[in-house]
Design a protein around this nucleic acid. Sequence first.
RNA 1: CGGGACGUAGCGUAGCUUGGUAGCGCGCUUGCUUGGGGUGCAAGAGGUCGUGAGUUCAAAUCUCACCGUCCCGACCA
Length: 575
Amino acid sequence: MRWTQALIPTLKEAPAEAEILSHKLLLRAGLLRKLASGVYTFLPLGLRALRKVEQIVREEMDRAGALEILMPALQPPEIWQQSGRYETARDVLYKVRDNSKREWVLGPTHEEVVTTLAAGELGSYRLLPKNFYQIQVKFRDEIRPRFGLMRAREFIMKDAYSFDTTDEGAMASYRKMYDAYSRIFERCGLKTFPVEADTGVIGGSHSHEFMVPAETGENDVVYCEACGYAANIEKATSGIPRTAARELGAAVEKFPTPGVVTIAALSKAPHAVPANRQIKTLVYLADSKPMLVLIRGDDQLNETKLMARTGAAQVRPADVANPADLAHFHALGAMPGSLGAVAKVPADWPVLADERLRGANDMTTGANEDGFHFRHVSLERDIRVTHWHDLRTVTAGEPCAKCAKALKIRRAIEVGHVFKLGTKYSEKLGALFVDVDGARKPCVMGCYGIGVTRTLQAVIEQCNDADGIIWPLAVAPYAVCLTPLVVAPDSAVMQLAEKIYAALTAAGVDVILDDRDERPGVKFKDADLVGFPIRVGLGEKSLAKGEVELKPRGGAITFVKAEEAVAAVLKALGR
RNA sequence: CGGGACGUAGCGUAGCUUGGUAGCGCGCUUGCUUGGGGUGCAAGAGGUCGUGAGUUCAAAUCUCACCGUCCCGACCA
């Protein structure tokens, strides 16, 4: 490609819409343009890089035995109603109506479609196992799109779905995908690490996310450098000890605490009850049903864990500002700040307590009477706990549950996610097969996603310097940029450039010839900004010595004989 | 949805407090110049000042509503 025939609109300054570095570089290097919030056009260079990522994904999925298909983005709402996600996923579903008023859903993911396909086509164990994948546009009505391609309304995803006859088979499929993902990200030049993950609304029992460490990521990952434990903070646990038990002793005693409505306030004089001797009592609604959640005063509730433990599709804290929720506080007899689980708890309310409180006594908690608290409370003796769960959020420095070394927490970008789904969708959508024994059984499923557009941006986030992008060779839009500093067609410099251009093109190298009549500085700056892995500089000075320059992006210049330039480039490309 | 900021030429911005001819840099066009890290000079094109109401003799500037964009939170398959 000749630069003058391409469209590479580089920018000296980043548009104000971009906040993080990778987003700025996407815009400045002329890869991407925004049409609307969370909706983007890929310019030629951006598309080339995207295609490179897609191709790596495709090759590794094929190698893992998956079959590429292409499913529709436009989907009938009926299958979503069948799976139950028409309701549970309604917040992210784009719904459209055609001219005859029939409703459609723009696919945010494809479990429903692929399971419907399997229901029709995979009727015998002889056809199993199968793994279908596609690389396709997804639509999600994100509450807040942000950071360019990181969280967009419309984005490209590789999604795969495996169908097995047995649980063991499904685990083998899962393992294959896990291994394929490791190879995919490695080939993309990305440093990723897998972490244990929550399975969320999608359901399932086993799940890992592939994370790219980055301060701009939207996930917190808990990890242990000593033993390798790593988990999304939504899922992570630690070996932190339970609350120290004291002698059972005194009976519950009510005491006045006028105006004290926070853990912090109660921990100060005159009461001076340390936060770790307090019970935080929260009113939560799980699918609209009220419950009490008990957490130690110095801990934070992990809502994802709460959702997982209750099995609810939606959990939210009761809100004093919401008139409909006030009844729940009235039922307890107090407002937040004085809530407790000792007295006046309606008999049909579940009381969920965090494991860290198990066996704790001599604790202080609200009395369900505004302005009063109870002291000398024993969890076992004084509170009707209906469920004990791990509900707290891990914090940095806590001992690892496996090896007791201090845990660390870092931010990361989720680029891939593998799930073992089980039979949730195959049962609901009728993906049954006839087994050897003649019995009809639901397929055991797995699903596996890679955010392709997000991965592309993650590469930029990880591979850059002050001058611009530093593309890993495997995903660079062009591997080589030829930079003649004289572009007159009859000049020796340009004629040599044309010769090298022709030879590299013939060798199948992705090469761009910067034939613009621009000053050297402009060409160098643009080449650095766009981030071509190798730049070949051709100028009169070096050519007088019979040499051209080879400059790897971010590396030092080397000089090679002009007649050896093509071979040197091929060698630098590892070919 | 709650909190905050912003909307002036393709991009970045000044002007708004105190109402009165819309300015600068980059980019773009033309000419000359320069020619190894975003040359220099000159001339030029390009603006519904987000949209709509209102106040006023007069609104980019003041008021209200709406739309859009971004950030924090909530949410997130």
